[in-house]
Write a protein that binds this DNA or RNA. Structure first.
Lengths: 149, 149
DNA sequence: GTTGAAACAGAAGTGCT
DNA sequence: AGCACTTCTGTTTCAAC
């Protein structure tokens, strides 16, 4: 599936992950390719859904979220938490995973009371285990093609 | 800190999270404001670091990553895993959290052998607990200002 | 793949209410 | 704060190579 992604494409993807607003001409300067060539490659990568979207990265603290938490949810007999998750604005990531915990989610809360309310609501669907984020070492690190080793 | 973020700003942030490439004029159309007014607000939000960056969202599968895993790491007497995490391209998120597990990370791997290698490397720093992602319900949901309740 | 030109869209600056 | 208008930058599309 990535057979057609060469070194140029990799560099383009890296630059666009660092800054989606970089101009095609500037990319061309950095990878020694002309601006139309860069534009065409980006168009291809977008069409192939390698580039899914361009998104603004918003600082949660600036919006009043003082707490980030990782909550693991062990559902009781597959209760339908999916709809709740989709409609809860504080839950920004949610994955179902293998193992004891059916789901892992990343949650934003303005304070501990707010977090408490979310946990209480999630407890309807199963038992939860909450870990409050103390430091963020990396978040959304730009992804690269797997090394061929 | 979010005292100056009004309804217009909220809508602007929502639209930019959905699509960072939407034009200021189009935003203006949707919130009934002129293009310069929108541009000025965005400039303010960028300067205040409410908008941190604009990033391309890349599809990991398209780059050859078939597996996403959540790995929890219980470090032995605070071993310095931070540097390893920073330099390991497969680890795209890493948080230190409260509780038993010192760290939680999101990891990409091309296959189970690849995942195995990463886990082995992390085991140098402590004991790991790995959960493979089966389904992604939401990832990077656009964030909104906390409801005033 | 390249350069160069033309057409178009979007962002930024200016002046004014 | 806001808008209308102008200018400038960047993207797109085309030609020809």
């Amino acid at each position: 599936m990535n057979s057609k992604i060469d070194q140029f494409d990799q560099k383009i993807l890296q630059l666009l992950q660092q800054d989606a607003r970089i101009s095609h001409a500037e990319i061309g300067r950095q990878i020694h390719l002309s601006q139309p060539a860069v534009s065409e490659r980006i168009k291809r990568l977008e069409a192939a859904q390698v580039i899914r979207a361009y998104r603004a990265d918003i600082n949660p603290k600036a919006l009043g979220y003082q707490i980030t938490a990782m909550i693991r949810l062990s559902t009781r007999q597959g209760r339908p938490y999916a709809q709740y998750v989709a409609n809860c604005p504080e839950i920004i990531d949610c994955y179902t995973v293998t193992g004891e915990d059916g789901a892992v989610m990343r949650v934003l809360a303005s304070d501990v009371e707010h977090l408490q309310r979310i946990i209480n609501e999630l407890n309807v669907f199963g038992s939860t285990s909450t870990a409050i984020v103390l430091t963020t070492h990396v978040a959304g690190k730009p992804i690269t093609v797997p090394a061929i080793d």
